[in-house]
Design a protein around this nucleic acid. Sequence first.
RNA 1: GCCGCGGUGGCGGAAUAGGUAGACGCAAGGGACUUAAAAUCCCUCGGCUGAAUAAGUCGUGCCGGUUCGAUUCCGGCCCGCGGCACCA
Length: 865
Amino acid sequence: MKYDHKKIEKKWQKYWAENPKLFAADDKSDKPKQYILDMFPYPSGDGLHTGHVESYTATDIISRYLRMSGFNVLHPQGFDAFGLPAENYAIKTKIHPAETTKKAITNFKKQMNMMGFSYDWSREVISADPEYYKWTQWFFLLLYKNGLAFKSKGKVNWCDSCQTVLANEQAEGGVCDRCGKPVRQKDLEQWYFKITDFIEDTGKTSGLLSGLDKIDWPESTKAGQRNWIGKSEGAQFKMEIVTKDSVILSPKGEESKRSFVNTQDDKLHLSVFTTRLDTVFGMTFALIAPEHKLVQELKSKITNWSEVEKYIVETKKKSELQRMAEVKEKTGVELEGIKVLNPFTKKTIPLFASDFVLAHYGTGAVMAVPAHDERDFAFAKKFGLPIDEVVKSVDGKSSVAKEAYTEDGVLINSGEHNGLTSAEARKKLTQWLQKEKIGQGTINYKLRDWLVSRQRYWGAPIPIIYCDKCGEVPVPEKDLPVLLPNDVDFMPTGESPLAISKKFHDIKCPKCGAKARRESDTMDTFVCSSWYYLRYADSQNDKEFASKEMLKKWLPVDLYVGGAEHTVLHLLYSRFFTKVLHKLGYIDFDEPFSKMRHQGIILAPDGRKMSKSWGNIINPDDVVAEYGADALRLYEMFMGPLEEMKPWNTKGIVGVKRFLDKTWNYLSADYTGIFIDNNDRNQWIEGKIDGATSRETEVLLHKTIKKVSEDIESLKFNTAISQLMVLRNSFYEIEAKRPISEKSYIEPIKGQRIKKSDFEKFIILLAPFAPFIAEEIWQGVLKHKGSIFNEEWPKYNKDLVNDETIQMPIQINGKVRAVLAASATISEEDAKKLALSDSNVIKWLEGKEPKKVIFVKGRLVNIVV
RNA sequence: GCCGCGGUGGCGGAAUAGGUAGACGCAAGGGACUUAAAAUCCCUCGGCUGAAUAAGUCGUGCCGGUUCGAUUCCGGCCCGCGGCACCA
């Protein structure tokens, strides 16, 4: 009978849904735990895509394998339901996001069940449910009470299309993460989380940087996070600003030049940060960001103010994108009338405002050393400024005539410091700064605090109340959750839609009872997803986000699998939350995900990315309808290594489908099967007759148990499946006992078959990969009571796994000239004797005496002549 | 530019404490079965020489090194992909 995947898969979907205990995590069990986690999906209207199927199948195989191997496995799933896409879709269609989200979730769950993913649905979390976002709000208050959530006014990324602010991480490259449109800078008061407090270790809590060293994550992801944090060590120092009016005084009070005056009394300094203090003697000018407040403070002293002001206005008009497009073309304007004093050379140098200096990094101003910095070099060339060489390469061959020499080297033209290496000079000059009290060694980071407020509707409301008398008042915990009203107009206006709802907005102060108003911004969805993995440990708890006991039992996550696009955003924020909770004593681990892997992108058959606009999307529903869920699971795992990018090949799925059919057909009485007739079949199933497994097949079976187990643990599903194919192929080739060389049909001989218990082991090995057909064979064909997933994972026999005899290659000068059968434990002496007596070897030696004979135990012999 | 990853048949990919390169699968060609097709089954399948399932020879991006032996280790290039990018 042909395998009817539609009927059979439906049958076991229903059976597994009715027996949720099969896959449920057990809070009370004392078996060792494993927490295997998928990144919870955003429930889009498009449903599951091939990428979801890939990573979810991988974790499903591991979860099923671990359960059968005696572990208490937590493998939950949920939905990242808040967010801009749902809201934008709602705006387009005028359907409430709660409605579309609910519908999408229903569809996702249907598809996940279709694929046979063994989730513990009793722990499902949906981030848009009040029972969930109550705790998101609780976390906000926890951070607030500990000084880690604060309101601040400053330049923020604003997306005109989405009508909201964005975190830096969501505005990379000056483009909105969600809609791809350019982002502009706007001055606004917004809520931030103090993620920068956790870059370095604090007390017993490892920092965002050092914590990376102890987790098993892809190197590229760790590098991405380090790069985003952007730690750089250098020095910061003050330079005095002098004006044209009168006498200049050196820092120590001596007169030097007549036409400048030390403005130290006005406390006007230019602070700069550099990682190359060793080049400071080559500073021939200084640069300041046009937005720097010092520029405004110096207004009265700047003689070309109208020109400077014009430049500032122009800079402001440029978008981040434009500024980046102009990377090569340096622009700027000198602040005439003032100069700065290089404290090392005591020389005065000009100061320029230029938009390539970033106001928000370091001090917003830099020392310019054109001889040793590419950007300063370009600027100096354009404005005709001097280029003073102060560092020479060790071999003395470097030249700054055509380009900057940016490597370390040996100091020249640096007074008493000549001859020092760059590293020595940095150390010494930093000490000098400290002694003179004008600067010190400093560390700067690119990472800035996380902007979490959004002027949008579909998110968790920020639990803060503004009272005219009491000011900013946190919502008392007993009043949580602050419910998101569902009767507001969610069309974007630039102001939060919640501000329009009077019922939501106007309330009484919980402290004094006076008239007050609610914060109308909602939280970034990434706040919701920064802690969801904790909730699964105790998802029904209405007293705490999770009990200490359950957190201790289940966390941290042992394996996390998801897309590489989350390298910075979600994965950095989650680590931050974990570190906050660790520091505040809620949990005893400070990294949430011990091991993580990314699934590679599955490309369309045409080699391009799957996308609606190309019309090349492979829809899992269609594939399942034609080939079945088992075939889809197996194919996606067989395509190649999990983390690699790989193109879909519709023909390729035929191969795994054939493998499944052959497995099924083996147990039939037609010409491809092993049974003579149905009576024969029934007797074998009932155990009245049994087959006999050859030594060869038995060895192969045990090798397969070993390889499949090891491959699952190291996520090498492609080779695990190929090994299962090799084993299944051998059932015919070996058991039929017909030499292949005869070229006769290798088809099963009726009645000749392996032992039933050995065949069952094969089906158990197959079960995590193709659960439907395995369950059908187990319960439907072999008539076992109860699920195959209650069975124990087979163990291999060590004695059978090690080969007794090997095919030993005999090389002459590294080239194989003969392959001889030998015992695996053959001695060196015997092996040499055997090799030298072989006729082929004798022929190749041409009577020459071997110079050397190399013997590798259990491997080969190499004769050198 | 910087960081990370990778380059193996017609294709997806196996094999690295250095030890028979090309497992498994797809595609292709030939054959069996069939009135026919589908399905199924068998054989061949890196290049070259060769009638050959005899034998040989070249082959894991390129050049060189270490070694009895290199896809694997080392040095120097070339190419592709992904991420970051005026961060001083």
